[in-house]
Measured scan of single mutants.
Amino acid sequence: MAEQVALSRTQVCGILREELFQGDAFHQSDTHIFIIMGASGDLAKKKIYPTIWWLFRDGLLPENTFIVGYARSRLTVADIRKQSEPFFKATPEEKLKLEDFFARNSYVAGQYDDAASYQRLNSHMNALHLGSQANRLFYLALPPTVYEAVTKNIHESCMSQIGWNRIIVEKPFGRDLQSSDRLSNHISSLFREDQIYRIDHYLGKEMVQNLMVLRFANRIFGPIWNRDNIACVILTFKEPFGTEGRGGYFDEFGIIRDVMQNHLLQMLCLVAMEKPASTNSDDVRDEKVKVLKCISEVQANNVVLGQYVGNPDGEGEATKGYLDDPTVPRGSTTATFAAVVLYVENERWDGVPFILRCGKALNERKAEVRLQFHDVAGDIFHQQCKRNELVIRVQPNEAVYTKMMTKKPGMFFNPEESELDLTYGNRYKNVKLPDAYERLILDVFCGSQMHFVRSDELREAWRIFTPLLHQIELEKPKPIPYIYGSRGPTEADELMKRVGFQYEGTYKWVNP
């Protein structure tokens, strides 16, 4: 592979701008107003304001973009700056750019259920340069409990009458099928589907988006991507930290609602779906819905739930269990780990287990898709061969690698495990991989909904998990304890083995 010439960040961002501006969906010269509902909250200060700053800094926003914060707290732009700027990672050389960014910011205080507050917000936006005809993007960085009041008031008082209007809704989209349907029906009564952007930030990850290209742009994968060759698929999300004093919020939802029903299920769809007619948003989402419709409700015998306990040999936070978090209700049975087996009941995947695993306070930070292939028929190497695996590593250190057998150097035919490896950090030294939120917010500006969740996708996802969630809430089974920093409950490994996964433990990928 030829040595790549190092590029400056300015040059890299210039390439990104060229890609972005050559499309006809990006209205570079139009006025846009980006409204952050819930501007005083954690999500706004840690993710949304920093993301908008990065896009502005790199010249990736339309030229005439204004940012308006809205929340109940009586704040000023200076207050917003004070709480969000520490997350910007701005350099001293960017000081003038930073001043320009905050000059485009404003803030309006108001209630979430008060019509007069929204009329005041609308008047404020109209007073901005060309504000009355601007395109408006409303980001709901809010708890779902206020979605209905907020969307109703936005629709009645704050819509642009000339430009387009788009609304970005953060997960969780309800707690179960019934609450999700209620919320979807409410929002759909106010906005068209092409105006609604239900954001799952995992769909903005580079390697998640790469799944489609790997599958449908490489001839070698087509013939082997089926039940005849693939023994099982494992989708993993692991965090090495616990709730760390923020367990009160987590306890309301648990690990299945927080990660599995959305992030992991979306990745499953991209692995299992048929080739779409095109890369058009609805063509892709149509195929994802077909996959979900082929999955039956989760069966309790295919589920393992766990909850982390303190590690007596650990240090600091590792010595504390979930129930030691003062914000967690006493005696909570909320799971911090889950392993679930699903089956896609169609011709391509009949009988292939899709194993979804996620948890907190585990032994490493990792998100990946792992396809394990069947054993080689007619073994001539005296059971020395391990199964081939194709691994798409989402985070950290984005990579695609194939675990395969090669001859060990020497005189004899002794096979050993090795890999074919594409590590993004080595291959793409001159490429700026956008943060997931950067990519998705740019998608909203461009009107691309491919990486957002459609209402029928959402409904099918909740259909699969709601009976299990209701059973857990009714019966309150005690989750299996696992030690902070471990791989999780051993019962999860036993479940995976029972459905056909072979864990060798003899080879570990190392970032080159």
Rank of each mutant, 00 (worst) to 15 (best):
W225S: 02
E19Q: 14
E93R: 09
R227L: 05
F88A: 03
S157T: 04
L43S: 02
V150N: 09
G110K: 02
N165P: 04
S157L: 05
E94W: 04
P144T: 02
G254S: 03
L203I: 04
R192E: 15
Y249E: 00
N229L: 05
A25L: 09
E19N: 15
I167D: 00
T76C: 05
R120G: 10
Q133R: 12
S184G: 12
S157K: 12
G247W: 08
M207N: 13
S180R: 01
D114R: 14
S179V: 09
R81I: 14
V233S: 01
Y202P: 01
D114H: 06
C13R: 13
V150K: 00
I168W: 03
F250A: 02
E18G: 11
R72H: 00
S179C: 04
Y202C: 05
P144G: 04
K47I: 00
E170W: 00
K238Y: 01
Q133L: 06
L20H: 15
G247L: 07
P144E: 05
A71N: 01
S73I: 03
R104A: 14
I67Q: 00
I154Q: 00
D100G: 12
A71C: 08
L98S: 09
L140Y: 11
M1V: 06
Q11D: 15
S184E: 07
E252L: 13
S189I: 09
I67D: 01
Y107G: 02
L177F: 08
Y112C: 08
M159P: 11
D113R: 14
G245K: 09
F26G: 15
M207S: 03
K47Y: 07
N210F: 03
A116R: 11
T151D: 05
E99K: 06
I167S: 01
D181A: 05
S106C: 11
M159L: 07
R104N: 06
K45W: 05
V146R: 08
P143G: 02
Q161M: 13
I52L: 14
W54E: 07
G23L: 08
V213G: 08
P50D: 01
F34S: 07
G245Q: 13
G69F: 00
S8V: 06
A71T: 05
A103Q: 10
R182I: 10
L140R: 01
R104L: 10
D100M: 10
Y112K: 03
I154N: 04
V77R: 07
A44M: 04
L7F: 14
